[in-house]
């Protein structure tokens, strides 16, 4: 019996190119629906081989347009492309407007692209927890190159680094002076810097500031980030941008960092899943504990500080320490 026969029906449909099955399984993953788990389990051995390119940067720098240009470049080279484009959910209503498809241009009937918009659903770091699983589904469905597009508003949205094999940070001229480039966060995660809208004045200055940043040695693991000016209106620099991505991908293989990073990420993912479950269990326990309410009354009345209340609850549920 071949392994394919033992796969759950959904997994098999995805591998065979059933786009609806793929789309619906992505929804199940997003919703945390338990029906997705056996499918993900069956497909997991088929994953971990293709480049996952993260595109991140502030709002309005042209990430979606750039993505469209890269997709065009890759389709012309015969590569198939899977995309997850993440936009924020409202912290107030949970709603969102996902507008990254607007820039997508493709030939009618081109099945070599699968584009999925995703709301962040309150997840910190700009990337929904489900994104990683969705990239696995796309890879199992046979796409050669994956993109994850996220808003990186500045200094905290670095979760993309935990998913992408190559992180492209997209910037534009006039985002600020060179001191901005020294700040922690977004500038630290780049394997490739893309100075988009390079047809505008100031692009050379932005590239120069980044050049100085790179010269100061911000690279990780012995890789010096590459700076590529691009424009999607002229258009220019798209082939060069892709070449820079491939250069980083081959660096990962050559240096052995790919395997090392993969192991560290998977360790973090496993640990995170355990933490999640424990966290949920703790939340459930507290929910049912009348003691919480009594302690809270004292905290509100300033008779006990929050750390003291937490100590008492922890001791009551988990013993000593």
């Amino acid at each position: 019996m071949s392994p394919a026969v033992r796969q759950p029906p959904g997994a098999r449909a995805i591998v065979e190119g059933d786009r609806r099955a793929l789309a619906q399984t992505i929804s199940a993953v997003e919703d945390g629906d338990p029906t997705a788990a056996p499918i993900l389990r069956a497909l997991y051995p088929r994953t971990g081989r293709v480049p996952i390119v993260g595109l991140t940067g502030p709002l309005g720098v042209g990430k979606s347009s750039l993505l469209n240009a890269l997709i065009g470049h890759l389709r012309a080279a015969g590569k198939t492309v899977g995309v997850v484009a993440v936009d924020p959910s409202s912290p107030f209503t949970g709603g969102s407007v996902l507008g990254d498809r607007i820039r997508l241009e493709r030939k009618p009937d081109d099945d070599g692209i699968f584009f999925r918009s995703m709301a962040s659903r309150g997840e910190a770091g700009g990337v929904a927890a489900a994104t990683r699983e969705v990239t696995r589904l796309l890879e199992a469905a046979g796409y050669d190159v994956l993109f994850v597009e996220t808003v990186g508003s500045g200094q905290v949205d670095v979760a993309i680094r935990d998913i992408a094999s190559t992180s492209v940070v997209v910037l534009v001229p006039h985002l600020g002076d060179e001191v901005q480039t020294l700040k922690a966060g977004l500038f630290e995660i780049a394997d490739v810097f893309c100075v988009n809208k390079a047809d505008l004045p100031g692009a050379d200055l932005a590239a120069k500031d980044l050049g100085e940043l790179v010269a100061l040695g911000t690279g990780r693991d012995g890789w010096a980030p590459v700076i590529v000016p691009t424009s999607t209106t002229t258009p220019s620099g798209i082939a060069e941008l892709w070449t820079a991505v491939l250069a980083h991908e081959s660096f990962l293989d050559r240096s052995g960092h790919r395997a090392e990073r993969e192991r560290a990420r998977l360790r973090a993912e496993v640990a995170e899943r355990v933490r999640d479950r424990v966290g949920r269990e703790v939340a459930d326990r507290l929910e049912q504990d009348p003691e919480l309410r009594r302690l809270l009354d004292r905290v509100v009345a300033r008779q006990l500080d929050p750390a003291g209340a937490a100590d008492e609850l922890y001791r009551a549920h988990y013993g000593r320490r």
Binding site: R20, A23, I26, T93, G94, G95, V97, L98, R101, I102
Partner: peptide, 28 residues
């Protein structure tokens, strides 16, 4: 619709019927 808590995939202008249907299926 966003303010009512929905996830709105905004496909924008000048869509062919084929593009509309393709987007609807990919986005489930």
């Amino acid at each position: 619709l966003r303010d009512a808590g929905m996830e709105v995939i905004y496909a924008g202008l000048r869509q062919t019927p084929e593009e509309v249907v393709r987007a609807a299926l990919e986005e489930d």
